[in-house]
């Protein structure tokens, strides 16, 4: 069974992940592939206890790519969370066979423009989105399970490959 959800969300573990998606899909493991969090023991400890009843593994993007195929065959279900499109693209370029990413939350920052209420992108983000789509990785915008799934390319034509 393994991969149930691969999510891009700059809040990493938070309520929508733990409560909304967690209660819907009941993952056994939650992988956070984030170089910054993986390098910080305090942050790893914080994230490890953030999702009661789910085993949390905080690893670098490179380590996630190395573990991808094994996790894909593992018993039980798993979630992946990466912080941004840069990490998502790095993971795919490192060899992880990700079929789709769920875009769940990329908040406003200076230079970013609004795609919808919870997705803001700048030109670098859009270039990464185009690179992922060119590799046939689907990019689906959906914050919670009950919301409508929309393709990023449809919502934001600048993110679509030419």
């Amino acid at each position: 069974m393994s991969w149930l959800l691969q999510r891009i969300d700059d809040r990493l573990i938070h309520g929508q992940v733990v409560v909304a998606w967690g209660q819907r899909l009941h993952p056994d493991r939650l992988w956070v592939a984030d170089d910054g969090a993986a390098a910080d023991p305090w942050e790893r400890d914080l994230l490890a206890v953030a999702a009661p009843g789910i085993e949390v593994r905080v690893v670098s993007v490179a380590a996630m790519a190395a573990a991808w195929a094994e996790e894909n065959l593992a018993a039980g279900g798993a979630f992946l969370i990466v912080r941004d499109l840069a990490a998502a693209l790095a993971l795919v370029e490192a060899g992880a066979a990700v079929a789709r990413f769920n875009l769940g939350g990329l908040h406003y920052a200076p230079g970013k423009s609004k795609v919808n209420e919870y997705i803001y992108l700048d030109e670098a983000d859009r270039a990464r989105a185009r690179a992922l789509l060119a590799r046939s990785v689907a990019l689906e915008v959906q914050d919670v399970p009950g919301a409508r799934v929309e393709s990023l390319a449809a919502l934001d034509p600048e993110s679509a490959p030419a």
């Binding site: 809040r11 990493l12 938070h14 309520g15 409560v19 914080l46 953030a50 009661p52």
Partner: peptide, 8 residues
């Protein structure tokens, strides 16, 4: 609630 962004 525990695990929400406010808590984290």
């Amino acid at each position: 609630f525990w695990g929400g962004s406010c808590h984290i």
